[in-house]
Nucleic acid binder design. Structure first.
Lengths: 187, 187
DNA sequence: AATTTTTAATTGATACATAAAATATCTAAA
DNA sequence: TTTAGATATTTTATGTATCAATTAAAAATT
């Protein structure tokens, strides 16, 4: 057997049978997770120390801050990528602490809209301002170019993951793929 | 005033007084988080469906799989970046389900080592093999080059974040910066 | 040797997260 | 108009997470 043929065969074998060991992908996933966890842990810690609040509470307020007319619990569930049952409890606690209030919908007695109270809006604005500065410092070791590159790469990754997930879990007629429990992976 | 001068002034003003609004950093953080959450949610879902287990359990087994002589609960806590109290419960459940066993340390009666049982090791090997394939598919939309670029960028980000965090929370004499509760941010 | 400090792990209270089941309501078709 | 199904939320059960407090043992001081 000629060498070129052998090489050819090897190349094909490689692609077909041992497509590579996926070690880089695994490393990339671990690194992504580490970065995420590092930043998230620090944000949680600062939210706690500075504002005596938590990340899920902050995230929920952030969603509502962009929705002057309020949001349905179901919308919150989708946007935040958490289950509906979780939202119920979170909203309960935020109502207790005076940052939110529930508004019944006259058109649909199953549903209800949640809105920020004036206090809630005021408090969120303060937190968001500091939060944005924190984020900036976390990235201060990267140049604007490097940030661009990461943005682009993660954008592509997002599409890649979504394609794989959607493939396994096809959309329903109305566009919500959830198997149960209402959690959507939209963002 | 000539137009060119005006443009020039604007550019300088931008650089000098409004160093930038940090919006790109914020977008990058959101995107990073989204990618992380998408992948993580899918892994959780598959671990549940295929192996009736959870991500924290899988992670703990993964740590132990690399430590043939077992690990202290405290080490697990640091490596996994979770609190000591959390590890206690997680280990309890894994012992109940027969994947782990606790081994008292003759040299230190406060501490104990946890090890995989043969069954635990066997089960983990199976899961890890599939897990690695899942990860590979999530990244299949990226070329090897793009993966390299992301790997490098996230590496730099990790350093950047660590620098900021360490700065705010300087190491103690013995090397553990934790304020309380034992959680370390080592990885 | 007695005391203090540090360390390792556990416990208890609370918050968040899921999936699954229950409840209530709305919509559309028989 | 009843009824079948879809939808919105809540409830329930369980697992995972934190922090703060506690126990027990070890190490360091005095």
């Amino acid at each position: 057997m000629a060498k070129s043929a052998l090489v050819q065969l090897d190349a094909e074998t490689k692609v077909l049978e041992a497509p590579h060991d996926h070690k880089d992908e695994l490393r990339l996933w671990l690194r992504l997770m580490t970065c995420n966890n590092l930043i998230e842990a620090e944000i949680r810690s600062r939210l706690r120390e500075r504002f005596a609040t938590t990340l899920p509470r902050f995230d929920l307020l952030a969603q509502l801050a962009r929705a002057p007319d309020g949001m349905l619990l179901g919308e919150l569930s989708q946007r935040m990528m958490v289950s509906a049952g979780n939202i119920t409890g979170l909203v309960d606690r935020l109502v207790d602490s005076g940052q939110l209030h529930r508004v019944p919908l006259p058109t649909d007695r199953r549903a209800q809209v949640v809105k920020l109270t004036p206090a809630g809006r005021r408090e969120f604005r303060k937190m968001a301002q500091e939060h944005e500065k924190w984020i900036a410092t976390f990235f201060e070791g990267l140049s604007p170019d490097e940030i661009e590159v990461l943005l682009a790469g993660l954008s592509k990754l997002k599409l890649s993951v979504r394609a794989v997930v959607a493939d396994r879990r096809p959309l329903t007629a109305r566009g919500y793929p959830r198997p149960r429990g209402q959690t959507s992976v939209v963002r």
